[in-house]
Design a protein around this nucleic acid. Structure first.
Lengths: 181, 181
DNA sequence: AAGGTAACAATACGGCTGTACGATAGCGGG
DNA sequence: CCCGCTATCGTACAGCCGTATTGTTACCTT
């Protein structure tokens, strides 16, 4: 992030600095575009997968787990996404435009997961007493922290799926074993 | 983070630029010191609290929950710690010295939580079949993601403790209700 | 064919950055 | 007294950054 400059972006893209200025009014707008583009793609991916799985009548917990694990920086492409999201969301507090993107992205994802949990409740996979938003927050928090752990210690240090599964299973009780062994 | 410069640090500290150079060989060393100092203090705080609680014979799950929630950016001081940690750990992949600090900090924290879970197992609060390291990873992942959520939406948007509690309870089964309601 | 417009390049410029260097002042030991 | 050491400052400098400006193609429209 410290190394992102117009000249470097231009060089890596194989174009001139002037061209980037032609399309983006300033550095802020360039970063905002990169951030928005990345989080939008991530959000749409998980949204689509949840919808597909729901339509296909698959087990909600399984679909959710798959969709979320797919966001982790487990391959090079997702790692780039992760880094963009991480760097820009860190910068967000100081920049209103970035903050708004961060809020919208967070809200979208929370909405998708909440809907999935509600869907699970309708199908009897989730106890009726569960606070769906709180449950979604819990699952998402674990996912996010898991992303950090994977990014730090590498994709092969441990099984991210095995860490996330019990948390999802806490919400979707009754259809899975709850063991951590 | 983009605004951290020698001149700005000097101004805010009320000293000259030269003085900072006198104590730190370069910017890298200055940042590394700030990062190391912050994570060390955080790690020691949770380590001490876990040890105290363990000696006092309190319920391990309760002590652990308290110690970890205390790391979240719920007041201004912790928010500063959070931001330092976040910014510098983001920068870590490109800078070996920072990466080493990040690894050590992560390892320390994982060690403390793992020990707490093992302690809970000895006392019968945790099932004997549980993978303690995996359980610690899960709890820490949720904590970390929770910190991000709190930093993004503010300390009053939801109860962070209520989100973390069920995850801790998944590990420390039998002594707590497991409900999310 | 003319002309307008969009794509793209080159360069110039003021500002800020990290770092290097020298100066000043206090101060304890010989 | 003077020497070395440390704390502290001021400033100079080369380099990179973001931005503004100007120029050059090439295409589309009429």
């Amino acid at each position: 992030m410290a190394g992102v400059s117009f000249s470097r972006v231009a060089a890596e893209a194989g174009v001139s600095v002037g061209l980037i200025q032609h399309y983006f009014a300033g550095k802020d707008e360039l970063l905002r575009f990169a951030y928005d583009d990345t989080v939008r793609r991530m959000s749409e991916r998980v949204g689509a997968r949840v919808r597909e799985g729901s339509d296909a009548g698959l087990q909600v917990s399984q679909v959710l787990l798959d969709s979320l694990v797919e966001l982790l920086p487990l391959d090079e492409e997702r790692e780039i996404e992760y880094r963009v999201r991480q760097c820009l969301s860190t910068q967000a507090p100081h920049h209103p435009a970035l903050a708004e993107v961060a809020r919208r992205a967070g809200g979208d994802l929370l909405g998708y997961v909440t809907m999935a949990v509600e869907d699970g409740r309708k199908r009897g996979e989730v106890d009726s007493g569960v606070d769906t938003v709180l449950a979604a927050r819990m699952i998402l928090a674990t996912l996010q922290g898991l992303a950090d752990q994977v990014a730090l210690s590498g994709a092969d240090a441990f099984s991210a799926r095995d860490v996330l599964r019990p948390v999802v299973a806490t919400v979707f009780a009754g259809h899975h074993d709850r063991s951590l062994s």
